[in-house]
């Protein structure tokens, strides 16, 4: 069995978002790039599954679409414990193009389980995993909050409104995960960091560049009015404000 994790290279979640060039481009100045938080949880869970599988899961690979500058993020995934990495050498233009590029790169690689995070924390498309499944013509399960490997097959837990379902899927399939598959992401050990330098990182070129959407420009949310302070001894006033001023009670 082989597991593949799709990795998105995103700004650190504490980044203050700014734009340049007349608000047409994200200001990458001073930005720390990280593995998309959900993808990091996916990798963590995949490694746990591999370690607990008595050798049935042979390999955990990672893949990302991005220019060379995104390679440190893949190296970090290798340091956390992935066995090898693939970088599709292209600027990620939109989810459709990225999914097409991923599909092209892996269609003959025989991965049994492909995991992607529910969305990237930058463009929030929530789309690549589902699109990839469709391009590959395989099943997908979304809102996955747990993955188990039992008697040679994968079982996933899917969140539904007010509960959850256990879903069995025919391999190969794409699991689109959210928080819950793992709680705390694994961090690289010193030994992992040393090993990552020599682990295979394959660069593939891509011919598919069919983006259907284009980011025209960006705007920041309007500034919020100052917070109105209410005396902690006077909760009647707060309730009154919520009723008459904010009209939410």
């Amino acid at each position: 069995m082989k597991i593949l994790i799709c990795i998105s290279n995103v700004p650190d979640t504490t980044t203050k978002i700014r734009f340049v060039n007349d608000n047409t481009a994200f200001d990458t100045n001073g930005v720390q790039w990280i593995i998309n938080p959900w993808d990091e949880l996916a990798l963590t869970r995949a490694l746990e599954l591999k370690e607990g599988s008595s050798g049935a899961i042979e390999k955990v690979s990672v893949i990302s679409v991005g220019p060379q500058s995104s390679e440190p993020t893949l190296r970090k995934a290798l340091a956390i414990g992935a066995d090898d990495a693939i970088r599709v050498n292209a600027e990620p233009k939109d989810a459709f193009a990225v999914a097409q590029q991923l599909a092209e790169a892996i269609k003959d690689e025989g991965y049994d389980l492909i995991i992607s995070g529910i969305e990237s924390s930058d463009y929030n498309g929530a789309a690549v995993g589902g699109m990839l499944a469709e391009f590959l013509g395989i099943a997908s399960v979304s809102s996955v909050s747990g993955i188990n490997f039992e008697s040679g097959g994968f079982q996933v837990k899917r969140e539904i409104d007010g509960g959850s379902e256990m879903v069995a899927a025919q391999t190969p399939f794409v699991a689109i995960i959210q928080k819950g598959v793992a709680i705390v992401p694994r961090i690289p050990s010193m030994r992992g960091i040393m090993q990552a330098r020599t682990k295979p990182l394959k660069v593939v070129e891509s011919s598919a560049t069919d983006n259907l959407t284009e980011f025209v420009d960006y705007e920041l949310p309007p500034a919020k009015a100052a917070c109105k302070m209410v005396d902690p001894e006077n909760m009647k006033e707060l309730v009154n404000l919520l009723h008459t001023e904010a009209k939410v009670l």
Binding site: F96, A127, G130, M131, S142, I176, T213
Partner: peptide, 24 residues
């Protein structure tokens, strides 16, 4: 909807119809 169901289905429909998806 941009809920669990919409997030599960919209990307697949996007590929089937070759329709650009704007989520959220």
């Amino acid at each position: 909807s941009n809920n669990n169901t919409g997030k599960a289905l919209a990307p697949r429909v996007s590929v089937k119809l070759k329709a650009g998806l704007v989520a959220g």
